[in-house]
Amino acid sequence: MDSFQFLGLTFHTANIISITIAFILVFAFIFFLSRKISMKPTGGQNILEWVIDFTNGIVRGQLPGRDGSQLGLFAFTLFLFVFFANQLGLFLQVAVNGVDFVKSPTADPVITLTMAMVTLALAHFLGVIKFGFGGYVSNSYLKPFAALLPINLVEEFTNLLTLALRLYGNIFAGETLLKLIGSLAFSHGLPTMIVALPLEIAWQGFSVFIGAIQAYVFVTLSTVYISRKVSAEE
């Protein structure tokens, strides 16, 4: 069962399960690391604080001051979710009769487009909140001069597409190559297994790296887009 209908909407089983698993992983991660919060940080609290410092650093790099401090939670959650979603498909892929059940949710363009859309919607929303609608329009589309309006309009769409498809492309390519190496391993018995195993290990390791980098890039670009909407352009 590839997808099912509910309330007139189409749901993909693989995406629903994978998002839920990523959700549970992120929640378990923050839940078990935040059990003992003390003035002198120990163990899990150190990891958690390091990640929070890391994402706060990304936000502060783009948005120093009060605007940035409001986005810390968003960046933190987004980073953890994208990171765990990217890694999920590397360790666990369940497919029954050619139908996926568990994979990286970020290996689906619909999910990454949704992520990018949420981010950019937030950016536009914060822009309107900060400058009012008129100020938002002039700041986002008529600067540095009004003649750039068409380019600025196009840029909004390219932002959405590049943000989403960069993440999707990286993770989808990683998973596809993993599957290809996997099928190579089982194609001609033992010899191909021996050849494919180190390849698979190497590619998995590299994909872990790519997944982390892409999570970082996604969060960084998200804050860049938000900062461009909420800070006045010179």
Partner: peptide, 9 residues
């Protein structure tokens, strides 16, 4: 289109 997935996400 998978509006359901988007909503779920």
């Amino acid at each position: 289109f998978d509006y359901g997935d988007m909503l779920f996400y």
